[in-house]
Each structure stands twice: as structure tokens, then as C-alpha cells.
Amino acid sequence: MNIELITYLILGILAISSAIVTIANRHPIYSAMALIVHFFALAGIYLTLQSQFIAVLQILVYAGAIMVLVIFVLMLLNLSHEDKVKLRIQSRQSFGILLSAILMIIIASTISAANPTQPKVSDVSSMFSPQNLGQILYTNHLVAFELVGILLLTAIIGAIVMAKKKLVD
């Protein structure tokens, strides 16, 4: 047991438990808080993979931007009639658990069938530096980068139009 493995195990258990809290909690605001913990745990796991740029991006984009948006929407909607809603069909719950179990079995069998050989692990911290990644992004993937800019602009316009529009029956 070295320090890396211990860090990985703590962060992995934190990520799994906060994900379970996210989907199991009755109140969406507590789910959102657990999801922030989940994003931070994943950022820590990215750090154990020497991917500092992705870890910073994870905190900025997910824990920063997306979760602020989610909590803002929760505040805007003010869901007070939370407990009045009951599950209509109880059988659907067991059906959903069955489906997820099948999915888990499929994923587990695929992982074990792939039987990945352990590649020779080298130091990649200079390869994954923001400088190197930026160079790759702006030379090899420039068109995709520009298209992502257009996609984000379209999403902003779509979000404004959809949230502003007076809906008529």
C-alpha cells in the first residue's frame, strides 16, 4: 500500500458514495451539493492520473459553471411540493434496478473479456501540460475547436430563447 493507491481508494469511495447520495436524495438541493463533492473527487482522481489541466478544467466547468446553473434553476423553480409526489408505479422501480443490474453485468463482462495488458507506464506530466495540450488543440484540432465555439454560441441563444419565451397553449 503506497500513498498513491490510498489516495485513489479514498477518492474513489468518495466519488461512488457522493454519486449514490446524488441519485438517492429526496431533495434536489442536497443532490446538487453531493454532486459538487463528486466533481471534486473526480478532479482529485484526475490528479492521480497526472492530468492537471483536466483536473482544473473539471473544477472550473463542472463544479463552477454547471453547478451554479443547476442551483440557480433550483432556486428559480422553488419546488415546495416535493413530498406530495409519489411513485405512480412501484413495479417500474424494480424494473429499473433490473435494467441497471443488466447494464452492470454487461460492463463487467466487457472489462474482464478485454483483459487489458498493463502498458509500460511512463512519466507523462510534461506531455499533459497545458502548453503541450494547447499546442495540439490549436494545430491538429483547430476546426473542431472553432466548431465548439459555434456550438456554445448556438446553445446560449437557444437557452435564452427557450427560457424567455412566453408559452401559449
Binding site: 446553445a155 437557444g158 437557452a159 427557450m162
Partner: peptide
């Protein structure tokens, strides 16, 4: 993937508000 997820969250939450 993160850029697309950001776009998805903006549009998805706008749909929820609508």
C-alpha cells in the same frame, strides 16, 4: 466532451424552465 456538456446543461436547464 466538457464543452458539449456545458452546452447541453444550458439548453437542458432552459427546457426544464420552459
Amino acid at each position: 466532451v466538457m464543452a458539449v456538456a456545458a452546452a447541453e446543461s444550458a439548453v437542458g436547464l432552459a427546457i426544464i424552465i420552459a
